[in-house]
Design a binder for these strands. Structure first.
Lengths: 206, 206
DNA sequence: GTCTATACGCAGATAGAC
DNA sequence: GTCTATCTGCGTATAGAC
């Protein structure tokens, strides 16, 4: 893995991402990855000793990228609601760019939970703070009403992530009428999620 | 598949459900299914000629069960909001009983979309009406404000389904603090989704 | 219907030439 | 670093006895 190898290695990684994201660890085929990288199987094993290691590389990258997005930027100058809005924009933009990401991570975790326990420790959390912590902070400062932060966090994630997760279903059902949740549709989604947050953090007092 | 075989056949089906739901078509192993059914591989092939056929049986069952839940009961005596509330209760109860169902269906569709196109046709839709149709009806009758029915439908599904989809992540992260979205937690979830619907169908006028 | 034993093919992995 | 050719093992599937 020296500098001059970057081209081949990157082609492998790109092909591996596509294969593993779509078919998972068991479903992906080393032959396909080699084909799509424009090389042969032997060379795959030269770069990454075996399938497991190649998968781990892809999965680890996805995992840390994913969890980076699940943090609120520590810009304490902004009001809490604004920080949450920014968080929502980030997540939707991110999932829009990598629509298979959530599915990939959730599916692989569900197949092999132990694997995940170790990995989640290594993820650096120095770029921001968790949404739940932010909500708690807001309640302490009386900036937002008393809510159940776990439920609100879950609701926000649900509204943002599910449309991308479920898009295979909706694409299939509405393949003729062609409803798409990209481009302009993302704007609708963002608006709707923000309305929900507005509602939860302004009107509601439970 | 005569009457007296029901026991063995059902044991196979039960084991196959567990295996395919967790590991998917490629990840599931016929040996495991046989073991968990308390029989041997040869007998599996006696009942279901091959893996594909066994998978199809399980998948078709899951698919029609799933889409049955995605219908609103045609009880026109109730106000629309009540019908939606019932719909929400149904979905959450259903997903609570079969937490892996959404993941299974979405994942298998994403791996093989063509397969799905054929199957979705065969599903009987005579038990109710789609949520979008209901929302449109409500707007026509001026019973609810003007909303984008696709977005609202997506929002409701998101709020209901995502917690179950993503539970592998949250179970893993909070395995120590042990936040669970079953039992009493389902009540919180239902309440939150209904609040959202209330908000969308009462206060909001966009 | 149920079993044991076995065939077969595919996909991951390695050897070794260039 | 990249290839062709080959090995190996595992998982699906079948043959055939009971």
């Amino acid at each position: 893995m020296q500098l001059k190898d970057i081209n081949t290695e990157e082609k492998i990684i790109e092909a591996a991402k596509n294969a593993f994201m779509k078919y998972g660890l068991y479903g992906a085929r080393m032959q396909d990855i080699a084909d799509n990288a424009g090389i042969n199987k032997a060379l795959l094993h030269y770069y990454f000793r075996n399938k497991e290691k190649l998968f781990d590389y892809v999965f680890d990258g996805a995992l840390s990228k994913y969890f980076e997005q699940m943090l609120v930027f520590s810009d304490t100058s902004l009001p809490i609601k604004e920080r949450i809005f920014k968080y929502i924009d980030n997540i939707i933009d991110f999932l829009s760019e990598y629509p298979q990401m959530s599915m990939f991570i959730i599916k692989e975790i569900s197949v092999n939970e132990e694997l995940f326990y170790e990995k989640v420790q290594n993820i650096k959390k120095d770029k921001g703070v968790h949404l739940i912590a932010l909500l708690n902070e807001g309640m302490e400062k009386n900036e937002i009403p008393m809510i159940d932060p776990t439920v609100v966090m879950m609701n926000i994630h649900s509204l943002c992530a599910y449309p991308f997760l479920a898009s295979p279903i909706f694409k299939a059902i509405e393949k003729s009428s062609g409803v798409s949740f990209h481009d302009e549709e993302n704007q609708k989604l963002k608006k709707s999620v923000k309305e929900f947050v507005d509602f939860k953090l302004t009107l509601n007092k439970n």
